[in-house]
Simulated scan of single mutants.
Amino acid sequence: MSEPNRKKTFVDPQVQGALVRRLIMHWIGFFVLASLVAFVLQVLSDPFQPISDHLQQVWWTQGPFLLAALFLLPVFVLDTIKLSHRFVGPINRLQCTIRSIADGNMPTKLKFRDFDFWQSLADDFNQMIDRLRSDGNSCEEAADEDEPAAV
């Protein structure tokens, strides 16, 4: 089954933004470390060459790898946003439903997309709604029985 699209991909900027920032920090750390290791290995291979020769040699030997890593960063960011959408979207939907109930609207059952996380959360929420409805009906019936019949 295909995955239905939500209108927004960046649903919760606080959560998804934190994930993207963390991913970028990790990527930069990896990129700097990989570059540094490549440079140190180059210098250790012939320590008496000038630094400019070492930098040029690192560029020619490791440059394609570093460029590939650089071009992969946007792919990593987009994939992180898409993955986070699968757990942020359902929580956002739950939050909107709870706000709606708090505003006095009738509770509606939750249905998350098939590929979303937290499916059991929707099931538990729906069981709670069913239970509240059935308890509410029995309480209303009991209240009606206590009132004297209208003559």
Score class of each variant (00 low, 15 high):
127 Q>F: 09
18 A>L: 05
123 D>C: 11
139 C>D: 05
95 Q>M: 14
110 L>H: 11
21 R>H: 14
149 A>H: 11
132 L>Q: 14
107 P>Y: 09
144 D>W: 11
9 T>E: 05
20 V>A: 05
141 E>M: 01
63 G>T: 00
141 E>G: 02
19 L>P: 00
130 D>T: 13
58 V>M: 10
16 Q>Y: 02
106 M>V: 12
132 L>I: 04
100 S>Y: 02
21 R>I: 13
132 L>Y: 14
2 S>H: 07
81 I>N: 11
78 L>H: 12
117 F>H: 13
6 R>C: 05
65 F>A: 10
81 I>L: 15
116 D>W: 00
86 R>Q: 12
124 D>E: 14
133 R>N: 14
50 P>S: 14
59 W>A: 06
126 N>Q: 10
49 Q>W: 03
87 F>L: 04
129 I>K: 00
17 G>Q: 02
140 E>Q: 15
53 D>E: 14
89 G>I: 09
54 H>R: 00
20 V>K: 04
75 V>Q: 10
119 Q>V: 07
90 P>C: 10
91 I>S: 00
130 D>M: 01
69 A>L: 10
147 E>S: 07
98 I>T: 13
67 L>T: 09
95 Q>D: 15
118 W>G: 00
48 F>Q: 07
33 L>T: 05
19 L>S: 06
133 R>D: 08
31 F>Q: 10
85 H>S: 13
65 F>R: 06
124 D>I: 11
69 A>H: 05
11 V>K: 06
46 D>C: 01
40 V>M: 13
73 L>G: 04
55 L>D: 02
139 C>R: 11
108 T>S: 13
18 A>I: 01
12 D>V: 07
93 R>E: 14
5 N>D: 03
134 S>W: 07
47 P>H: 02
116 D>K: 00
131 R>M: 07
25 M>A: 15
141 E>C: 04
80 T>Q: 12
31 F>T: 00
59 W>H: 14
86 R>E: 12
97 T>V: 10
110 L>R: 04
102 A>W: 06
129 I>N: 11
85 H>D: 15
150 A>C: 07
69 A>K: 10
11 V>Y: 01
128 M>S: 13
67 L>R: 08
74 P>R: 03
42 Q>P: 02
20 V>G: 00
148 P>H: 08
86 R>W: 05
98 I>N: 04
37 V>C: 03
28 I>K: 04
33 L>N: 00
118 W>F: 15
120 S>W: 08
